[in-house]
Nucleic acid binder design. Structure first.
Length: 426
RNA sequence: GGAGAGGUGGCCGAGUACGGUCGAAGGCGCUCGCCUGCUAAGCGAGUAAAGGGCUUAAACCCUUUCGUGGGUUCAAAUCCCACCCUCUCCGCCA
């Protein structure tokens, strides 16, 4: 959520920046909702003040034994109270309308973000690793997984439905090994604290991160409750500090969480239907930071590096792109996507999305800190990124490390996590 | 699921029997000053947030907020109702 005062004072910038994102900022609605709200507020508050002054007087009169006068005044105030009650309803409505409006306005892109319409305008900022020259036609992860009997999508479909996976044997082990490896790396070398949050969160939490009210169709809701399955650990972890005031010296706070993620993938019918690229349920290690506003962009760079480090240690070629204004997520001010090389598709595939939300989420979730020398509390900046999506890492390993005989070599760093297994063979 | 206790400021914690003088004692923490060879201790002062008005800005004024939402009342932290959460005991359970 943007600061309404900031919008008011920088209307032109806001309109332009939102337009860069391919959305539209409705200036007229903003102005009329804001004015209507302010008009009612001053009206109500004037009446409330009169009532409060009067009530105090009643108390004094009664104490002085002037019951008659007090009674008269009470009758008068009763009427005023009725008015207040009515106007308060209007005020509530006006406040809600205004907030609802603000909640649907996306974040403003950072100045360093390339302006563009779509992913075609994203800009590559880094390219790492050497793509392997296969002396044979590389198979895709579905074929490899099936041949090695480590991935069974048909039976997963029987158990649940499309877009679910059943990992078996060393496949299941590989998933677990990757998760453990990533967590150890981020907690041991990158300074993140491990957390294991709930896999469901309530409406307030989802509003805090910006997933609600706009994107409910992307979520799985638990019937009969106020809970949704999390589509990413970003939701529960960012909300750890919702409605709290932190100390400046505690910043930045860095968390790593390994959780399953659940996404309805509404609107992606027919897209990425093959394999485990796009699933209703997948596992992910998520990195989340609560940063000081002055240093959040440095934290953004280091978070992205921390995530990319996983791929470097795994020896998987990747590139990093800055998302253009037209391709960014709703809450983000700047996003880097890390994309892993997928040989069978002869393309790069997103494996991590690292964003700085600045104070957009913090304002919604009311996450603040108290400056060291005293003074007004300020909103923190929140950041997060996958570090990494485990299932897509499996794809990367299976496809990049496959041999002509159908076996798959295990990257050295994972071997200890695989109980010494160095390759998966038929 | 059953019975009971409780949710108050950055934190701890009084206040709720008799509604008004309670944005709320006291303590801790923090900030500033004094004091001390340094540190600690001590002394003094200050220290909630959000919104609105006014303003270049600040000061200032007003409103709201004592788990959440309703209700009673001229007036609610305090009375009534519903819900949420925490703790203790019982039952059930991985």
């Amino acid at each position: 959520m943007l600061d309404s005062k900031y919008i008011e004072e920088n209307l032109e910038t806001v309109v332009k920046k939102i337009k860069d994102r391919g959305a539209e900022f409705d200036t007229e609605s903003f102005k009329s909702l804001d004015q209507e709200r302010k008009r009612i507020i001053s009206q109500v508050e004037k009446l409330e003040n009169e009532r409060n002054v009067g009530s105090k007087k009643v108390g004094e009169l009664r104490r002085d034994g002037k019951a008659d006068e007090a009674g008269e005044l009470q009758t008068e105030l009763k009427e005023k109270s009725e008015q207040i009650k009515q106007l308060s309803e209007e005020r509530k409505k006006a406040d809600e309308d205004f907030r609802d409006f603000l909640l649907t306005v996306p974040n403003i892109p950072h100045d360093s973000v390339p302006v563009g319409d779509s992913d075609a305008d994203n800009v590559e900022v880094k390219n790492w690793g050497k793509k392997r020259e296969f002396g044979f036609e590389p198979k895709d992860h579905v074929e490899i997984g099936k041949a090695l009997d480590i991935l069974d999508l048909d039976r997963a479909a029987k158990i649940t439905g499309a877009r679910f996976a059943l990992y078996k044997g060393l496949g299941a082990r590989l998933e677990r090994a990757l998760a453990n490896f990533m967590l150890d790396l981020h907690t041991g070398e990158h300074g993140y604290s491990e957390v294991l949050p709930p896999f469901m969160a309530n409406t307030a939490s989802f509003i805090g991160t910006g997933n609600l009210p706009k994107f409910e169709e992307d979520l799985f809701k638990i019937q009969g409750t106020d809970y949704y399955l999390i589509p990413t650990a970003e939701v529960p972890v960012t909300n750890i500090y919702r409605d709290e005031i932190l100390s400046e010296e505690d910043l930045p706070l860095k968390y790593a969480a390994y959780t399953p993620c659940f996404r309805s993938e509404a609107g992606s019918y027919g897209k990425d239907v093959r394999g485990i690229i796009r699933q209703h349920q997948f596992n992910k290690v998520e990195l989340v930071k609560f940063a000081h506003p002055d240093t959040s962009y440095e934290e953004h760079e280091s978070l992205t590096e921390n995530a990319a480090r996983v791929l470097e240690l795994l020896g998987l070629p990747y590139r990093i792109v800055v998302l253009s204004t037209g391709d960014m997520g709703f809450s983000s001010a700047k996003t880097y996507d890390i994309e892993v090389w997928v040989p069978a598709e002869n393309t790069y595939r997103e494996i991590s999305s690292c964003s700085n939300f600045e104070d957009f989420q913090a304002r919604r979730a009311s996450i603040r800190f108290r400056p060291k020398g005293g003074g007004k509390v300020r909103l923190v900046h929140t950041l997060n990124g996958s570090g990494l999506a485990v299932g897509r890492c499996v794809i990367g390993i299976l496809e990049n490390y496959q041999e002509e005989d159908g076996s798959v070599r295990i990257p050295d760093v994972l071997v200890p996590y695989m109980g010494g297994v160095q390759e998966i063979t038929v």
